[in-house]
């Protein structure tokens, strides 16, 4: 499968810097789409429609807006942020994943960005591997596999039956497996439960 192109947003009011970066990126091997934005508000709007992978930002844009930035990052965990280091702010801000300076070579900048992209992808892959079952869902599944009724699972986890049912629905949606015996085999294949614990 062809990997989709990388969406990069550049948040930098200076047109010269923006166009410079754009040229560097377009001339590199990175298969990317670039979106230029000037304010944090524009970023929020953009994120609603475009799955932005990397944000390149002038860190000054984040000054006094840390709360909003954290909120955006929480809402879009797959977005990574590269800060442009202008030498004014010395320490790497907690709000960026890494930074580069405008004096770095084009090669270095491209390298830094593709590294970010790789990290992103492997994180996404990792997530897919356990079919995204949450900790709670795994607990419910374990109860199910051990033959517990919804009520028993609810009691032992201190949640309502209604919530157990919702978790069960989600488990089925994520795994594509509906029956209890099917889920047992799933749980063993995924090493969520040990086969020794199951009566055959």
């Amino acid at each position: 499968m062809r990997k989709p192109s990388l969406h990069i947003a550049i948040l930098e009011p200076s047109r010269i810097i923006c166009e410079g970066l754009q040229t560097v990126l377009y001339q590199s091997d990175l298969d990317c789409r670039i979106h230029r934005i000037e304010t944090l508000e524009e970023l929020t709007e953009l994120l609603e429609t475009v799955p932005v992978d990397i944000l390149i930002t002038n860190p000054l844009q984040f000054v006094n807006r840390e709360k909003e930035v954290r909120k955006i990052r929480k809402q879009y965990p797959s977005l990574s942020v590269a800060g442009i280091d202008y030498g004014i702010i010395q320490k790497q801000s907690m709000l960026t994943d890494l930074s580069f300076t405008l004096y770095d070579s084009a090669e270095h900048i491209v390298n830094v960005l593709s590294k970010l992209d790789k990290q992103n992808r492997s994180a996404a892959l990792q997530k897919n591997e356990d079919d995204n079952l949450t900790k709670r869902e795994i607990e419910v599944l374990t109860g199910l596999v051990n033959g517990q009724m919804n009520k028993e699972i609810a009691d032992s986890l201190n949640i309502s039956i209604h919530t157990v049912v919702r978790h069960r629905k989600n488990i089925t949606m994520k795994t594509g497996i509906r029956s209890q015996s099917g889920l047992t085999i799933y749980a063993i294949s995924k090493k969520i439960v040990a086969i020794e614990d199951i009566e055959i």
């Binding site: 795994t175 594509g176 497996i177 029956s179 099917g182």
Partner: peptide, 10 residues
């Protein structure tokens, strides 16, 4: 479908 998914995915 369960059977198929188990063999295809897990």
């Amino acid at each position: 479908k369960d059977l198929k998914h188990l063999l295809l995915k897990y």
